[in-house]
């Protein structure tokens, strides 16, 4: 399983994301997430970026909570069974379309959670692709043509893994200094700063090594597209076809 093509899991994730969005169904979303979790658990190598999936799940859960709260508080009311009511914020007439507070209906809550779930799934699938693919390998097969965004590409593909690395580094430092449960707030800024500066350093290193100077790139050990890669992609293709056929 070690030598899957770096694009395989990315294609797989993109197709599944397509299937989830097309179906717009919470069960499909949940199922896709479960499959992604199993794949990560089974196939990811013990590399620094492998933790990206769990990190993306945490991030997704955070977004779900925020999304649900905001969705319930603000927006157009959906009629239905009233669950409870919160005081309504009086707003001037000229923004008549928007409502803050008021009656919270079961339908409103469910639709917020539903939308949130779809978003989580998309994030989790992205996290799974990052977890299962070495960012360095991905970079090696990136066509040189897009060097115009060279540095941006490097940063984009390495940002999440770097973020995860930095998170564990900072947590370790905290533990060493006897702070086992640091608050999110105290970590967030150093975390972003650290991972971004490391991504920039990586970009500088690649530049110094001549990345993108020649329009053509030779391969030391070509990474072949194998049958197993086709098989993985085929499962995702089957999933998206299945969803599209059912929808019709």
């Amino acid at each position: 399983m070690k030598s899957l093509h770096p694009l395989t899991w990315w294609i797989w994730s993109l197709l599944i994301v397509g299937a989830v969005i097309a179906s717009n169904n919470a069960w499909v979303a949940g199922f896709a997430m479960a499959v992604a979790a199993i794949s990560v658990f089974k196939f990811s190598e013990n590399a620094p970026w492998s933790k990206s999936f769990w990190f993306s799940l945490k991030l997704g859960a955070f977004i779900l909570v925020i999304r649900t709260v905001v969705g319930v508080l603000i927006g157009v009311p959906i009629p239905g069974t009233a669950l409870f009511s919160i005081p309504r914020l009086p707003l001037p007439n000229w923004i008549a379309g928007i409502r803050v507070g008021g009656v919270v209906t079961q339908e409103r809550l469910l639709s917020s959670i539903h939308e949130g779930l779809i978003i989580i799934t998309v994030i989790a699938l992205f996290g799974a692709a990052v977890s299962l693919t070495s960012p360095h390998k991905l970079l090696r097969i990136t066509p040189i043509v897009i060097y115009e965004f060279g540095v941006a590409t490097v940063i984009a593909t390495s940002a999440l893994p770097q973020l995860v690395l930095s998170a564990s580094r900072i947590r370790r430092a905290r533990a060493l200094r006897g702070d086992e449960k640091p608050s999110w707030r105290s970590i967030a800024i150093p975390l972003l700063e650290d991972s971004l500066s490391r991504s920039l350093e990586l970009a500088a290193a690649m530049d110094a090594r001549g990345y993108g100077i020649s329009r053509k790139r030779s391969r030391y050990r070509p990474i072949p597209w194998q049958q197993i890669d086709s098989a993985v992609v085929a499962t995702a293709l089957a999933a998206i076809t299945f969803v599209l056929v059912l929808k019709r």
């Binding site: 970079l139 490391r198 100077i213 030779s218 030391y220």
Partner: peptide, 28 residues
């Protein structure tokens, strides 16, 4: 450690040469 751009020793050694588009035999 902050300047490595690949995962394994061999790939790291080859990286700069790949970018220069050198022939595989020569790289080997």
């Amino acid at each position: 450690s902050q300047g490595f751009v690949t995962d394994t020793v061999e790939e790291e050694l080859a990286f700069g040469m790949e970018a220069q588009n050198l022939a595989p035999d020569l790289m080997r």
